[in-house]
Design a protein around this nucleic acid. Structure first.
Length: 424
RNA sequence: GGAGGGGUGGCAGAGCGGACGAAUGCGACGGUCUUGAAAACCGUUGUGCGUGCAAGCGUACCGGGGGUUCGAAUCCCUCCCCCUCCGCCA
């Protein structure tokens, strides 16, 4: 969410953001609604003031005046009863509109509607050159009996069940990433996957991507990222400078309906409904340079992790149409997937400034005593099972075994190669 | 699932229809005193919105929402959260 006063004072800037981000929103309608709310609010507050004055007098008045005062108050009361519901309704409508206003994209981010406008910033590592017929990750899973083939009967399409070494590998990755984050000064937080609507509005996932979330009974949803929980932990509090920056490494099971991805990536581990994520989350003082430093730190953490996994990747700067409504900028790390002969997203760094903080009510009191909204950022640390696809494919060997990067071996009881027992 | 008790300012805790944005204590901040500190004493100390250049003024908020009333922290309805006991259970 943006500050209304900012919107009013920067109509062109906001309109441009709506345009380049491809958001369906009529800003003039919002501005008119805002004016309308203000006008009614002034009327209603005047009436309330009159009523308060009369009521106060009524309490002190003697019986002779009392009836007259009550009569006057009643007439104001009935006027208020006419106007108040309309005010409430219009305020709600305004809030709904404000929730749709996108953040202003950073000046240096590429402008364009989609993927084709993304800009590759750099690559790291060499794509593997196999001197043999390389397998894709699904073939490797089958070869070693690392996944239950008929799992769809249990949990539907886009589900998976890992077995044996792969099940252990998946869990090793979580711990590997968490340990790394803790070493960087982050606090590990194990989070629920459940979230109330307000928390999903808080991150910006609602109302825009409501259809992506599984809705449960009891007013709960399954969240698609631990960011939802992390971002809401301090909602409504006013933090002090000593609480900052908040640096959390969240872990949770994540659920996504993949409503907009029908028929895409149905095979294998690339796009499943239930997955796991270690998430980096930072909440810092509202300062763009500070935010930029954290953006770079979160990016560096992610790069260090994929480098330790020895996965070739590229860094992509997402275009305005791709970055998401709430973001100032989003940069993705895409790891090389040999079977697809392309890079596939594994990490996504996002910077919000105070857009999320306004929604989730994250504030602090600065050194001068002013209450201000904070800035938030987040990035993936590791998300499984997707990255298993790259890990298996990139590190596969001619005999079908899979070499494990040295950084991961301590988490696998020293195992250097997976699949040795089942390989020919 | 059953029974009961609670949600009030940074914290503790009073208030249960008008003088209440809210006693009191603690904490925090500023000052006096002191070589310095502590203690003591004095003062300040919630948030949102509207309006205004500002000082200020107005309005709303005592878990959320709705209602009764001239007037609600206080009464009613409803939802949420927390605690205790019983049952069940990983």
């Amino acid at each position: 969410m943006l500050d209304v006063d900012f919107i009013v004072g920067n109509v062109d800037v906001v309109k441009r953001a709506i345009d380049v981000k491809g958001v369906d929103l009529d800003l003039d309608h919002l501005l008119a609604k805002h004016e309308e709310v203000k006008a009614i609010l002034i009327e209603v507050e005047d009436l309330r003031h009159e009523r308060n004055v009369l009521s106060k007098q009524t309490g002190k008045a003697d019986e002779s005046e009392r009836q007259q005062l009550i009569k006057e108050s009643r007439s104001i009361g009935s006027k208020l009863k006419e106007k108040e519901p309309g005010l409430r309704e219009k305020q709600d409508e305004l809030r709904e509109l404000l929730l749709l206003v996108p953040n202003i994209p950073g000046d240096d981010e590429p402008v364009g509607p989609g993927e084709e406008s993304n800009v590759e910033l750099r690559t790291w590592g060499d794509k593997p050159e196999f001197g043999f017929e390389a397998k894709d990750h699904v073939e490797l899973l089958e070869l070693h009996d690392w996944a239950v083939a008929s799992i769809g009967n249990l949990a539907g399409s886009r589900s998976y069940a890992l077995r044996g070494e792969l099940a252990l590998l998946e869990m090793s990755l979580w711990r590997f990433a968490l340990d790394y984050m803790v070493k960087q000064g982050f606090t590990a937080v194990a989070l629920p996957s459940f979230a109330r609507e307000a928390a999903l509005v808080g991150t910006g996932h609602f109302p825009g991507s409501r259809e992506e979330a599984y809705e449960l009974e009891d007013d709960l949803f399954l969240s698609g990222t631990s960011e939802v929980g992390l971002n809401y932990l301090r909602s409504g509090e006013i933090l002090s400078p000593s609480d900052l920056p908040v640096r959390d490494a969240g872990f949770s099971t994540c659920f996504r309906r993949e409503a907009g991805a029908a028929g895409k990536d149905v095979r294998g581990l690339l796009r499943v409904h239930q997955f796991y994520k270690v998430e980096q989350y930072v909440c810092c003082v509202p300062d763009r340079e500070e935010s930029n430093r954290w953006f770079e730190a979160l990016l560096a953490n992610a790069e260090a992790l994929v480098q330790a996994l020895e996965l070739p990747y590229r860094l992509v700067r997402l275009s305005t149409g791709e970055m998401g409504a709430g973001k100032v900028r989003t940069w993705d790390i895409e790891c090389w997937l040999p079977s697809a002969n392309e890079y596939r997203e594994t990490h996504s760094v996002a910077e919000f400034y105070d857009w999320q903080a306004r929604r989730a009510d994250l504030r602090y009191r600065d050194e001068d005593g002013r209450v201000r909204y904070l800035y938030t950022l987040n990035n993936t640390a590791i998300a499984t099972p997707r990255i298993l696809a790259q890990l298996l494919e990139v590190h596969q060997q001619e005999d079908g075994t899979v070499r494990m990067p040295a950084a991961l071996q301590p988490y696998l009881d020293g195992l250097e190669v997976l699949g040795a027992a089942s390989a020919d």
